[in-house]
Amino acid sequence: MNIMFVCTDNFTRSVIAEFCMKDFLRRCNNTSIKVTSAGIQANNDISKYSNIHFKIMKELNIDTTGFTRTMFDGKFFNEYDVIIAMSDLHRTYIKEQYNRDVPLFNEIYKGQKTSVNIGPPDRKDFLEQMNKLVHFFYESTPLMIRNIEEFRTKTHPLIDSN
């Protein structure tokens, strides 16, 4: 199964989800699931963005080697079994640009049509919020994998889930 997480710049939310899941799959020696991420504006200048999430993931022994930003493209619908948006902004963009419906992360994870958001880096509690965000993705991964497989089976029942 091929999974893609989508956010805005392909620098924070989708990247954290990607590398947390890759780490979990590596630890479980699961090679049947491939994970990547993309952004609907992955060509934006990110030089002013915080990269603290990479440091937090490193503290959790999550290897982020090979990180590259990828611009979302309609061809991904043919390459990925499940494309998951981080927020309504991303879901709406994909619907408007490609006339395709994609689920939200929280929709698959906990059955809630809510966005995964992180505030701006100038917030006083930004480090704490980023730490919570990384741990949210890290801790959600086992259940998320199970739920993605169930979602995929319900959405595309004729597709072999192996």
Rank of each mutant, 00 (worst) to 15 (best):
residue 3 I to L: 13
residue 3 I to N: 11
residue 6 V to T: 08
residue 6 V to S: 04
residue 8 T to N: 02
residue 8 T to G: 07
residue 10 N to F: 03
residue 11 F to T: 09
residue 14 S to T: 05
residue 14 S to P: 06
residue 14 S to I: 11
residue 14 S to D: 06
residue 14 S to W: 04
residue 15 V to G: 06
residue 15 V to E: 04
residue 18 E to N: 05
residue 19 F to K: 09
residue 22 K to N: 08
residue 24 F to L: 10
residue 26 R to Y: 10
residue 29 N to K: 14
residue 30 N to P: 00
residue 30 N to D: 15
residue 31 T to C: 08
residue 32 S to D: 15
residue 33 I to Y: 10
residue 35 V to Y: 01
residue 35 V to N: 08
residue 36 T to G: 08
residue 36 T to P: 01
residue 40 I to S: 06
residue 40 I to P: 00
residue 42 A to D: 07
residue 43 N to E: 13
residue 48 K to W: 00
residue 48 K to N: 15
residue 58 K to L: 09
residue 62 I to K: 00
residue 62 I to G: 01
residue 63 D to G: 11
residue 65 T to S: 15
residue 66 G to I: 10
residue 67 F to Q: 11
residue 69 R to Y: 05
residue 74 G to V: 04
residue 75 K to L: 14
residue 75 K to Y: 04
residue 76 F to G: 05
residue 76 F to W: 09
residue 77 F to Q: 10
residue 80 Y to H: 10
residue 85 A to D: 03
residue 85 A to C: 14
residue 88 D to K: 15
residue 88 D to T: 08
residue 89 L to K: 15
residue 91 R to D: 00
residue 95 K to R: 14
residue 96 E to P: 00
residue 100 R to Q: 15
residue 101 D to C: 01
residue 101 D to L: 04
residue 102 V to T: 06
residue 102 V to G: 05
residue 105 F to I: 06
residue 105 F to L: 11
residue 108 I to G: 11
residue 109 Y to D: 10
residue 111 G to Q: 02
residue 112 Q to V: 01
residue 113 K to W: 00
residue 115 S to W: 05
residue 117 N to T: 12
residue 118 I to A: 11
residue 119 G to P: 02
residue 121 P to M: 13
residue 126 F to G: 11
residue 126 F to V: 06
residue 128 E to G: 04
residue 130 M to N: 13
residue 132 K to W: 01
residue 132 K to H: 13
residue 133 L to T: 07
residue 133 L to F: 05
residue 136 F to L: 15
residue 136 F to P: 01
residue 139 E to P: 02
residue 139 E to G: 03
residue 140 S to R: 09
residue 142 P to Q: 12
residue 142 P to V: 14
residue 145 I to D: 06
residue 146 R to E: 13
residue 146 R to D: 12
residue 149 E to P: 00
residue 151 F to M: 09
residue 153 T to G: 08
residue 156 H to S: 04
residue 156 H to M: 07
residue 157 P to Q: 07
residue 158 L to I: 11
residue 159 I to G: 06
residue 159 I to T: 07
residue 160 D to P: 00
